[in-house]
Design a protein around this nucleic acid. Structure first.
Lengths: 218, 218
DNA sequence: GGCGATTATGACCGAGCGGTCATGTGACTG
DNA sequence: CAGTCACATGACCGCTCGGTCATAATCGCC
C-alpha cells in the first residue's frame, strides 16, 4: 500500500512518477526493474521512493493493481448490453481488452510481465491474484454459458476457463507476429499501437469460430 | 558453444556440472540464475565455468538446446506409427511431452522459463529458436492435417498453430493446478513428478475433444 | 515572521553479480 | 629429470542493486 505521503503528492508529480514507474515495469520484469532508473527518469531522489512506498515490491503491487483495475474497468465500460450469448461475450471482452492493450502498451506490458512472472516467493501473491481475477471473470461467463445452453453441459469447466484464458493472453503474441508490432518499441516511444478495428475483429471472429466449432470439418 | 575443455571433461564431472546448471536455470530465469550458485553446488571454482563456456549466455544456450533436443527426441521416439489423423498425432505428442515434463522436471522448467523469458536482446535469439522449432513442428502437422481433410480447409494456419501451441504449453499450468503439483518442489527434491497415465490421458481426451469439436453443443 | 511537521535529498552501505587473470597443479612426453 | 601443456583455482575487479538515514529544504498554520 502506498504511504500517505504518496497520496498527498501534487497530482502532476504523482502522475509523472506513476508514468515512469509504469514504463520501467513494462520494459523489465520485477527483478530486472530498477528503482534507480525510475528516479532518474522522474528527476527525484532515490530516497523519495521510500517515502512513497515500503519498497520495490510495494510499488510493484500498486502498479499491477492499478493496471488491472484500469483494464477491467475499460472492458466493463465498453460492454454493451447486446452480447446475449457466451461467444459474443468472450469476443466482446477480448476485443475491448485488446483495444486497451494497444492503446495503453505500458499497462499491457506490465500485466503481461506480471502474468508470466517466474514464481518467486516475493511476486507469487501478485501474479496469483491477477490470474485468479481473470479466471474468476471467465468462470462466471462459462457457468452462465453452460446454464444458458451456449456450451456443452458436460464440459470440464476449469479446463474450459484455461482454454479461453490462454487464447486471450496469447492473442498479444499472435497479433504481434501477424502485424509486426512491438510493444517494447511502443513503450519506448510512449505511444499507442495502431490497429485497425476490422483487422482485429477478423482475427477474433476466426478465433471465436475455432473455439465454438472446433478445428474439424463439418 | 562449449569450449573444448568442457568436452574433454571426465564424463562424471561433466554430468555433475550439467546437472547443477540445469537445476539453477530450472529454478531461476536467465537473469536471476547465478553462476556462483552453480559452482557452489558442484564444488568447483568460478573460473572453471569460463574455461568451459564463453559466459553465462553461452552456458544457457547450451542447456536450452540440450533440453529441447532431449525432449524432442523423447517425443519422436515414443511416436508409434499408429496415429493416422491430426488429432491423434497432437494427442500423442502432448501425451509424451507431458510425460517427459513430469519425469524430467528440471528440463521441463528450464524450457518453460526459456519460453516465457522476457525478450531482452541477450536471450531473444534463444527463446525465438525454441518457439520457432515448436511452431515448425506443429505447422507440419497442421498442413498435413488440412491436406488429409482432418481439419477445415479454410483455417488460418498460423492461428491454428498458435491455438494448439498455447494449449500444449498451458497444459503444465492446468495439470499443476488440478493435481496440486509443484515443479519447483520437484526440482528441489531432484525427483520426478507422479502422474497417472490414465488421468493425463483423460485430461488430454477432453482437451482434444474441445479442439476438435469446439465448446458449443451439437 | 516564526515554528513544528512534513517531505526531499543523495551520499552511503552491504550484498550479489558476471567476469578476469596470475598462479598453482598435475599429467604426459622425450 | 626437465619441459610443456591443459586445466583448476579463488582473490579480485567494476558495477548495479535495494535500501537507509542524517540533514536540509519546504510547507502550513497561528
Amino acid at each position: 500500500m502506498p504511504k500517505p505521503t504518496f497520496l498527498n503528492l501534487p497530482p502532476d508529480k504523482r502522475r509523472r512518477f506513476v508514468d515512469a514507474a509504469l514504463n520501467e515495469f513494462a520494459l523489465h520484469d520485477y527483478r530486472a526493474a530498477s528503482v534507480g532508473r525510475i528516479v532518474d527518469a522522474v528527476g527525484i531522489a532515490k530516497g523519495s521512493v521510500y517515502q512513497y512506498f515500503d519498497g520495490k515490491l510495494d510499488l510493484y503491487r500498486y502498479l499491477v493493481d492499478l493496471a488491472a483495475e484500469t483494464k477491467f474497468r475499460h472492458i466493463d465500460a465498453a460492454r454493451a448490453g447486446d452480447a446475449p450469448d457466451f461467444f459474443s461475450q468472450v469476443r466482446q471482452a477480448a476485443f475491448h481488452g485488446a483495444r486497451f492493450d494497444f492503446g495503453e502498451p505500458r499497462h499491457a506490458s506490465l500485466l503481461y510481465h506480471a502474468t508470466y512472472e517466474p514464481s518467486t516467493p516475493e511476486t507469487l501473491e501478485v501474479s496469483s491474484r491477477l490470474r485468479a481475477a481473470s479466471h474468476a471473470y471467465l468462470r462466471g461467463l462459462v457457468d452462465a454459458g453452460i446454464a444458458r445452453g451456449d456450451l456443452r453441459p458436460d464440459l470440464d469447466r476449469d479446463m474450459t476457463v484455461y482454454v479461453i484464458y490462454q487464447q486471450i493472453v496469447a492473442l498479444r503474441d499472435f497479433l504481434t507476429d501477424r502485424f509486426g508490432f512491438s510493444f517494447q518499441d511502443a513503450v519506448h516511444a510512449g505511444a499507442g499501437l495502431p490497429i485497425r478495428e476490422e483487422e482485429l475483429g477478423a482475427v477474433l471472429d476466426e478465433l471465436i469460430a475455432v473455439l465454438r466449432h472446433g478445428l474439424a470439418p463439418g
